[in-house]
Design a protein around this nucleic acid. Structure first.
Lengths: 210, 210
DNA sequence: GTCTATACGTTGATAGAC
DNA sequence: GTCTATCAACGTATAGAC
């Protein structure tokens, strides 16, 4: 192909097309990607793509939806702990693991948001917003109980999202600046624990060294 | 135009084209943007674009270079203070201010990185990397002197970049989740101080509430 | 369900008048 | 320097054979 790392195509053309679409959309976004690229990457003719997904946009929406579903399930880890340190650390670790395991999905999401989120408006308002409001209430309770410092809860969530997704979205920059050919599992594990420490200290958990 | 907020065109076609290019590239990236869109947004015929910038890619490179130059100058604030709290707080404030003032430039940069940074390889290795190495040395010194907690310095820089640029790149998501039609100056100022607090606490500066 | 062939609009870039 | 007109290449999507 053309700059797109080849992924072995599954026998199932739908699965192969979804995977290939995620890879191609991650590199060029919706409007910059072509159905020819996606089809070639999946090892099927263009017409097969248009048979299973009526339009390029339909395929794109399915990729976005799939990424969101996985993120949404991962977010459940936030609620499984009462202790703020455990809840936040767990959430950060899950998000970092998703950045490592599915960086292309994160990149598709990021480019859609950067482009003004025209295809995510309803998803953000209908599903992400209510989830966030619930988490905001919990964070506020921790603050009221004096368990974490007082701040605008949304800002904390934005920090966690931006820092963890950075390791997926800006992976090429990180690689170039740290001189790695790819972000391996060990490096990622070490970075994850550093990020956990940063996040916990940032809300006043963990003792500072000063 | 088509989803692109109209910016009044300058009399100077080159300036108008650079501004319009930044706006259009921010929405669609290099391959998703068309010279027709950029020219129309600037209020000039396509041929005028190709007269002043030989190819679409040349125009794109000038936008990227311009964004980098501004970021690089802003980064000087990092060195003007010996005290880590002042240095870090100042750097965060400058980066947040740039996210507010020039969000489109940040978005162009972000999409280029997400796409694998094919046009930024030399810039990142030749200019950003050396700058980072210098800053890493300073951070390490602060750690050795026990003024901040011990961590991988690069991770701290990545956090500052991701958190501050998030307010430019993911602005549409933030707007939808916080119910604002745009991120105004006052909201941004408040968010900036929250972020400053998060960053300072994350390295053990500022007392935690716990 | 899968493919080849193709319709038909859009694209980057230029030619050439002013 | 600026514009209108134009072109060859490429884009999405479909028709219709197997």
């Amino acid at each position: 192909m053309n700059g797109v790392a080849t992924t072995p195509a599954r026998n199932d053309p739908v699965t192969a097309l979804l995977q290939s679409a995620e890879a191609v959309f991650a590199l060029k976004g919706l409007s910059g990607s072509t159905t020819a690229q996606i089809a070639q990457h999946a090892g099927v003719p263009k017409a097969t793509l248009h048979y299973h997904f009526r339009t390029k946009e339909m395929l794109y929406l399915q990729v976005l939806q799939s990424v969101f579903t996985e993120w949404y399930q991962a977010a459940a880890s936030f609620d499984q702990e009462d202790d703020p340190a455990r809840a936040l650390a767990g959430y950060v670790r899950v998000k970092m693991e998703l950045s490592r395991r599915r960086p292309k999905g994160s990149k598709v999401w990021a480019q859609e948001i950067i482009s003004g989120a025209p295809h995510l408006r309803t998803l953000l308002q209908g599903e992400v917003k209510p989830w966030m409001d619930g988490r905001v209430a919990r964070i506020r309770q921790w603050m009221d109980e004096g368990r974490i410092v007082t701040l605008q809860p949304e800002i904390l969530l934005f920090m966690i999202w931006s820092v963890t997704q950075h390791y997926a979205d800006f992976e090429s920059q990180i690689r170039l600046l740290t001189g790695q050919s790819r972000l391996g599992r060990d490096w990622f594990a070490a970075a994850t624990e550093e990020v956990v420490g940063l996040v916990l200290r940032s809300v006043g958990l963990l003792p500072g060294a000063v």
